[in-house]
Design a protein around this nucleic acid. Structure first.
Lengths: 321, 321
DNA sequence: GATACATGTGTAATCGATTAACTACTGCTC
DNA sequence: GAGCAGTAGTTAATCGATTACACATGTATC
């Protein structure tokens, strides 16, 4: 910057003013400064600027698992929304580990992100408290924590799950295997509660960890126990469960009915296409980004609750009639 | 930091030394400082530190498309490798747009990342030159550019593609549809060149843009033209093509043989499972991160060329016998 | 011609860390 | 007891920007 100033025969203050679009500098001065910038290929140091202004124009996004397309889609939506408001997004991948999540959150705070989006790995509120104590704007995404004191953006699957349960029961299934998420996550618990509640005593629940491998194992146990229908509570466990079904040579829906929470582009390609509960991922990402930007802006956004939808495709068999 | 110093009855210099593990401070002083840090909940400002040390302990990673699981896997691997060396990764999503790619690269440079990993959207070398001019360590990943002057990490699919071609020709296919990537990307061009070369005059090429929609369209045209085999040059176009095949009610492999460049966890679930050329994504990400860290360390890493493998699963029909 | 006021620019403090250079103290040797 | 070495800690410069305040100049007013 000093070089630019010297080159243009002005002070660094003037260069800064030109850079920040202040009213002060003469058109002619501005011209000279811009020419010098161009000539020297100068680019301002964002670190120094942020240090001075205490604003980084950056949002932190800590997600549970980058390999999970559900979160990848969300990340993508957050990023688009943030960019359109002049913000950058730094993505942290917690890998469903509370420890790694905490590490990432602290790293992002140390780098002074202007706000933080968090998909909590567990419903333990201590990390959230820590962030709040630092005074950094925080929005929770997809999952919440006990006694959350910040805006939450998530999808409500109750209606869809209830409809799904009604169909399964109506079709005469009496042993319905539920591949549930971890009970220490809000989504894991709530989805399972709603579904088992709606199924009366017909549900058998096995908890997985939102990963493919646990889906296969859970499916194996449930099938062994005589389940005639399987519902996986997220797409990765669904993938694993499908593998197990396939490995055993079972036919969907003839031998077993099948549904998954979360849609994926390839579900329609299976034979039969898989019935899912689709979450509005793009809207979730957008809403979360918008809430966070509002918070940064000093406003107090409301919680956002979007609706997940049951998409019937055939893998439930006669339950879809 | 001043507060901590005051609280512990020492100067900021001493606090800094404790923080950075210098030898100087007495165990007793260290104890007092740590206590003060704990008590005040002090966390050092990474911006200020980076400004002073000119090191951010951050790598930039600009990928073509975050929604493409191929890149998501790579991102994940890069992140893991970087973290194990104490580095953070900032991911930028270029969305297959050269313009957005350039914007992101500049943003990351402005934030003074210690090094940059780039999956170039096109083979235009100007952006690479710009980065090199700034003296920032740079490694290209998956794709290269014309006259690249920096280490490149990629997967070589020549052998696998040649083997694939041999099988298709051997099985008597004479109209083989190739859904190619954009000709202005190195991977798009090279894969297509190798495959069409190995197929002699039997290939019909339609170019897509590495996205799902273009895969469907290309497949539609190729099927209309009488192709009896389809090869998609990346997983998203493969997804699109599969949708088109399915929409037309064609049976794989009876009506049409099918193969895809890139493996995906759900390919084995289809009926028949899809034959693919699998790239070692994790190794690519690791190697790229390692090369970049070496470069940052002042060493000169060699280009890395990993090998993609043909995985036969049944979607080629008799070509797999 | 003195006074007031607007306008464009420069000076220097500041953000929060790191670190070279310096000072003060302790203990040892001759 | 002077001289020296070694250790622990302080002072102050520095990184590269922003911005309050001061200053100089030009114009309008009486």
């Amino acid at each position: 910057m000093k070089d630019v100033a010297q080159h243009a025969g002005v002070s660094t203050a003037t260069v800064s003013r030109v850079l920040n679009g202040h009213a002060a500098p003469t058109p002619e001065t501005r011209e000279r400064v811009l020419a010098a910038i161009e000539e020297l290929g100068y680019r301002p140091n964002a670190l120094a600027r942020s240090l001075r202004t205490t604003s980084t124009q950056t949002l932190g996004l800590v997600i549970s698992d980058l390999l999970n397309p559900f979160f990848a889609e969300i990340a993508r939506a957050v990023e688009d929304e943030a960019r359109s408001h002049g913000y950058c997004v730094v993505i942290g991948n917690a890998d469903e580990s509370a420890e790694q999540e905490a590490t990432y959150v602290r790293t992002l705070l140390d780098r002074r992100v202007d706000g933080l989006l968090l998909c909590p790995a567990t419903d333990d509120p201590s990390l959230v408290r820590e962030v709040r104590a630092g005074g950094v704007p925080l929005v929770l995404l997809d999952r919440t924590v006990r006694g959350a004191t910040c805006p939450v953006v998530r999808a409500d699957g109750s209606e869809a799950l209830t409809a799904l349960a009604r169909r399964l029961v109506g079709a005469g299934h009496t042993r319905i295997g539920v591949i549930a998420g971890p009970p220490n996550t809000s989504t894991g618990r709530e989805r399972t509660d709603v579904l088992t509640g709606a199924l009366g005593g017909l549900a058998q629940v096995v908890h997985g960890d939102f990963r493919q491998e646990s889906g296969s194992q859970a499916a194996a146990r449930l099938i062994d126990d005589g389940a005639t229908a399987l519902v996986a509570m997220d797409n990765l466990m669904g993938l694993g469960a499908l593998g197990e079904v396939r490995a055993r040579g079972l036919q969907i829906p003839h031998d077993i009915a099948f549904a998954v929470f979360d849609d994926q582009p390839w579900f329609p390609l299976l034979d039969p296409p898989i019935t899912v509960i689709a979450q509005p991922t793009v809207e979730m990402g957008q809403a979360a980004a918008r809430s966070l930007l509002a918070l940064i802006d000093g406003r107090q956004p409301d919680d956002v609750r979007l609706t997940a939808k049951l998409v019937l495709r055939g893998s439930l068999g006669e339950a879809e009639l």
